[in-house]
Write a protein that binds this DNA or RNA. Structure first.
Lengths: 244, 244
DNA sequence: GCCGTTCCTTGCGCTCCCGCAAGGAACATG
DNA sequence: CATGTTCCTTGCGGGAGCGCAAGGAACGGC
């Protein structure tokens, strides 16, 4: 049944995995009845890799929650330069334009791996918050954390050289999407990640990232691969991030 | 009476300028009674230039609103490098640590000019939000906007060269703190602003900022001065910000 | 299995910008 | 007015990292 729905791309409320949703911090203090009422107004969508959930600049009519998979949120500048604003992990809200007080989406979330999202029309937000202020508080915390991450990134970009910034970015990815490697030693990043991606996260070029990874690999700190990254020596990486 | 209170540094609720507070978007939808109740739990403080409202890392027990003046929020890295995270303008909330889900303040707000703030103990927040969800929504929007600004800055730092970044920063300051100059031509920044400050906002050095300002001055775009900046040709500055 | 596409690597030259250094101007303080 | 402090300016040299370029490796589609 799930598979059939997936083929269509859209799917009914009944298919949404309750236990998964229930475990999210966002809904921690929400009563079962409330949650059910909220899910009743939701829709589910499957996003194949490389596809966008919505496009930057598009009118914001819905907000979203990532259930499975991984999204890279990109922004494109007037000159066509692209950057990755953040990575959306399972359980994260995104496409939250109205909270940012704008009526269009500021970025484009692209599926790095096969992903499943649920979405609500914008109007749902207000009506739900009214009955459940706790959700608003939770959402605010989420945005607050995101703000903190942004400030961290600004600080790093202002004061650190490229190697440290890249090391920090890799450590962050490791914490958010690390997975113990099947082949024994090390932790790998759990979704396809190109050198270009890392460059766009750290404000550098894919060339520099490639050179760094090569250098690190020769020291046994990481092991690269096409769209893959395996971290073998976290301590050394942390040392690099702190500037030796 | 106001002056006497100022001398002490702390002041009573009665002194708070109601019409000023009333006009803030944050309280737009709040009933007079609610506002009065909220102000009843507030305290007022005067901050002389150069002094901090609180220190980075300090336990967060209060949140704040800037009434008059101007604050530069700085963060110091482990290596002692300083950056300016943002500038607080009159009407802005700050010291909002609990919304960021942390119990210490992430930065240090330093008065650039003589400033007046009002502050509340953290507990007030929860009790007020409960009775007035609208305030939570407003606060979330504020944080959302701040997040957007942070992303803009990240994008600029990733993709633009120093000159464009500095031009953008100056334009932003102009919009937020610009004031028609008394001596006729141009708009000046309404608080003391050093080259070092601008450097810390844009992730460069005071040397580079100084060189840029000199170059711009020789083209008649701006006019510098000790802790002063006068913008004479906004159009040219915008052109620079867009990359000629 | 072949071919096209995407992704990665590495060398080389160049440029933007930092860091050092030294001097000068504005302002505060007694 | 004298002295110290903060802030600004400018020259010079060096280096981190970008951009170009060219080649190679992994993957997917037919």
């Amino acid at each position: 049944m799930y598979l059939r729905a997936s083929e269509v791309g859209d799917s009914s409320v009944a298919d949404i995995d309750r236990s998964l949703v229930r475990s999210l911090p966002l809904f921690a203090n929400m009563a079962d009845v409330e949650l059910e009422r909220m899910l009743a107004r939701a829709a589910m969508r499957r996003i194949p890799p490389g596809e966008a959930v919505f496009e930057q600049g598009q009118k914001a009519t819905q907000f979203f929650l990532l259930l499975h998979g991984r999204l890279k949120v990109t922004q494109v500048t007037a000159e066509g330069q692209q950057i990755i604003v953040r990575v959306v992990h399972p359980g994260d809200l995104f496409g939250f334009a109205q909270a940012l007080q704008r009526d269009d989406y500021p970025g484009t979330p692209i599926a790095a791996a096969e992903s499943v999202v649920i979405c609500w029309p914008n109007e749902v937000w207000a009506s739900i918050v009214e009955q459940n202020p706790n959700l608003a508080v939770n959402a605010m915390r989420t945005i607050g954390q995101r703000l903190q991450e942004a400030h961290t990134r600004i600080r790093e970009m202002s004061t650190e050289e490229v190697e440290r910034r890249v090391a920090h970015a890799v450590l962050r990815l490791m914490d958010q999407a690390g997975r113990r490697d099947a082949d024994g030693d090390g932790v790998h990043i759990d979704f396809p990640l190109t050198r270009q991606d890392v460059a766009e996260m750290t404000g550098t070029t894919l060339h520099t990232v490639s050179r760094l990874f090569s250098a690190w690999e020769s020291q046994g700190i990481v092991k690269g691969g096409r769209q893959k990254l395996l971290i073998r020596d976290r301590a050394r990486l942390e040392a690099l991030a702190e500037g030796q």
